[in-house]
């Protein structure tokens, strides 16, 4: 199953199980979404459950907040994470705070799905990774799945969660794992064990990271597309690294991270988003606070450069396996 099919399956399961679940966004109804994540759902559940909206992200999210406060469970799509900015006010000052400011009178069980990240020649308005803009906001949860199995289980968990969840879908992984070599043959999820998705209902708990490769020399923290790029870098280097897929950025599974770094004593953090004030900075702070006396070397970050995401120079911008490998070697030199 591709990640697109897994996400569709998750929404299918949720729509089937709970009549209060509704799915809407730009092009998601009749057509089934520009990435096809909701294809067939309107036909199956009808227009009252799955429908098209005007091109107004703030109106999509604003209406969804009203519905969620009433007691429904909207799962809305923002067509690209790059388009979420008009809705940022609704997300950060409304959805995130309803429960707190009303002392629990009103809550906001809402999921906002958005394709994130680069690697598809999308230029600066179809490639951004704005996760840190969400993790910085009290009241939101932020999830970034890296494979079809997790995508389905995490999305079902997000829809059932009592609080607003930002669900960032790495679009480069929609159709297959990506190891960072854009010149290589594209791989399909059919050939990857993590594309083997269970049928029916299951949840992958929010706030639990996963060790995707065990190792003793260095801990690599990654999420989304960078999990595979990091795995490729580890394989190319022959270094015995432990790779952790964070899966949920907030709440963060600090325990899994700390256990690993205490074991390896070294840490490399990888993300596509720009470096300065990126989520990697938060990870470094947490790791040094919890593991300072176990660290053998300064923590390294491999991130997108602090420049707008380019079009023609995409592969100079994207933090590929070579840069990660250099960082791995650097932390091992000390």
């Amino acid at each position: 199953m591709t990640m697109i099919e897994a996400l569709r399956d998750a929404m299918d399961v949720a729509l089937e199980r709970d009549p209060s679940v509704v799915v809407f966004g730009e092009d998601v109804g009749y057509f089934g979404g520009v990435f096809r994540c909701t294809a067939g759902l309107q036909e199956k559940y009808g227009e009252e459950r799955v429908f098209d909206t005007p091109i107004s992200e703030s109106a999509i999210v604003g209406a969804a907040i009203g519905m969620a406060a009433h007691g429904m469970r909207p799962c809305v799509e923002v067509q690209f994470a790059d388009y979420m900015y008009p809705a940022y006010d609704q997300i950060t000052q409304e959805a995130a705070r309803l429960r707190h400011r009303s002392n629990g009178q009103f809550t906001c069980p809402l999921v906002i799905r958005m394709p994130t990240g680069g690697g598809i020649y999308g230029g600066q308005t179809h490639s951004q990774s704005p996760e840190a803009l969400f993790t910085h906001v009290a009241g939101l949860k932020t999830v970034v799945p890296s494979n079809p199995q997790d995508a389905k289980g995490l999305l079902i968990a997000a829809i059932e969660d009592p609080d607003p969840v930002i669900f960032l879908e790495p679009k480069r992984l929609y159709n297959g794992p990506f190891h960072g070599d854009h010149t290589g043959k594209s791989v399909s999820w059919a050939s990857d064990a993590r594309g083997d998705v269970r049928e029916g209902y299951y949840k992958t708990p929010l706030g639990k990271a996963r060790v995707t490769r065990e190792g003793a020399a260095v801990t690599v923290l990654a999420y989304g597309t960078m999990v595979y790029v990091a795995e490729a870098a580890v394989q190319n280097s022959g270094i015995d690294a432990e790779v952790i897929d964070l899966r949920t950025l907030l709440p963060l599974d600090l325990e899994t991270i700390v256990t690993s770094v205490e074991k390896t004593g070294r840490c490399v953090i990888v993300h596509e988003a720009t470096k300065t004030s990126g989520f990697g900075a938060e990870l470094i702070a947490e790791v040094q606070e919890a593991c300072f006396y176990h660290l053998e070397a300064p923590i390294e970050r491999v991130c997108g450069w602090d420049a707008p995401y380019p079009h023609a120079q995409e592969w100079d911008y994207f933090p590929g396996p070579d840069r990660i490998e250099r960082a791995l070697r650097k932390v091992l030199e000390v």
């Binding site: 703030s58 109106a59 604003g62 209406a63 969804a64 907040i65 009203g66 519905m67 969620a68 406060a69 009433h70 007691g71 429904m72 909207p74 609704q90 409304e94």
Partner: peptide, 9 residues
């Protein structure tokens, strides 16, 4: 716009 969403619900 939240009121509109509530009314939709």
């Amino acid at each position: 716009v939240q009121a509109v969403g509530w009314a939709m619900a």
